[in-house]
Simulated scan of single mutants.
Amino acid sequence: MEVLERLFNAALIVAMLRTTAPILLVALGGSFTTKAGIFNIGLEGQMLLGAFFAVIGTIVSGSPWIGVLCGVAAALVLAYIFALLVVTFRANEVVVGLALNILASGMTISLMKAIFGTRGSIFGHGLVGLPIIRLPFAKDLGWFGQIISGYTPLVYVAFLAVPVLIIFYKRSRLGLYIRVVGEKPEAAEALGISIARIRYTASLICGVLAGLAGAHLSLGYTTMFTENMSSGRGFMAVAILIFSNGDPLKLLAGCLLFGFSDALSLRMQTTLGVSSYIILAVPYLVALAALFALSYRSRPRLIQETLATMGRALSVKPNGASGS
């Protein structure tokens, strides 16, 4: 009982919200491209580049907010390249996304070596993290006050963005255009909506949020940059996007699941002394289990659809006439 109390308390929820924020930001960015009909597997690279240039911008300027802007700008460049290749030149989106992920990883390692003469991590050099917001009324709310106060601004941005995006997709003209382009591109063309312009817009908005996610990793979640510090969060966001289809509430649920398993695994390591190798695998095992459960639940529907399609095909004769 004592062990459970040490594991499951307000501190676990605080850790869960902190670990959820970066993956939620990048997943919400990915929802724009998903809704626009683009499978964006390049989220990992955009996030990583945002984290690196946020650190560079902060070291050069001395301001974490200028660092955040630099991180967003770097992710935007990568998002623009992705849109240019996929939308304009109609390249395979999976190949382009993987190539840009490899480019971002190699670029950050090379630039780290060229600028700082080292590999592994960047810290010190006057690096300043994002400020912590302490809500003045939180101390009067007990354990609930501990949960809602004491985060960097980007954590609040991540969670507040969920209801904003729900309203955006349902109420705004751009949100409607993005959904139409993704679901019915022929209808979008008939209405005179530029599919290319909408997909470029969605890709660039995605780049902004991926850059914020990266900046949060290097300036909020930690105050340093390490090689490949995104650690598969971009790929995890892609997995969540697949089963949520870009719906903000489902994204939030999936990201909270990952954040909870990540926070719980870290507390198990510090509280119970569980092996770090097992700990590192826990979030991904939980995510895989959730994806398997969701795919298993949808299997009867898929089988029904397949049988219906086969039935329609068998009911049509080679000459096109219906069978009796």
Score class of each variant (00 low, 15 high):
Y156A: 11
I148H: 02
F123P: 01
V155L: 08
L141V: 07
G124M: 07
P136W: 03
V95I: 15
E183A: 11
L154G: 02
G106S: 10
I148V: 12
L127S: 00
A138K: 07
L154W: 01
S110A: 12
R134N: 15
I147V: 15
T152C: 02
A138I: 05
T152D: 13
L100M: 14
F159G: 10
G124I: 00
P153S: 04
L100V: 07
I115P: 09
A104T: 10
R171F: 14
A161V: 12
K184P: 00
V162F: 11
S105K: 00
I132N: 06
P136F: 03
R134S: 12
L165W: 06
T118H: 09
A114R: 13
R179Q: 15
V155E: 04
P163Y: 08
R179P: 04
V96F: 00
T108E: 07
R173F: 05
A161S: 15
G126H: 05
A158H: 07
S121G: 11
L130P: 04
L160D: 12
S172V: 04
S149E: 03
I115D: 02
V95Q: 01
L103I: 14
L165S: 03
A99E: 02
V155N: 02
G106L: 12
Y169H: 06
Y169V: 06
V164N: 01
L141Q: 01
P163W: 12
F116I: 09
G120F: 14
S121H: 13
K113N: 15
G182H: 11
S149P: 03
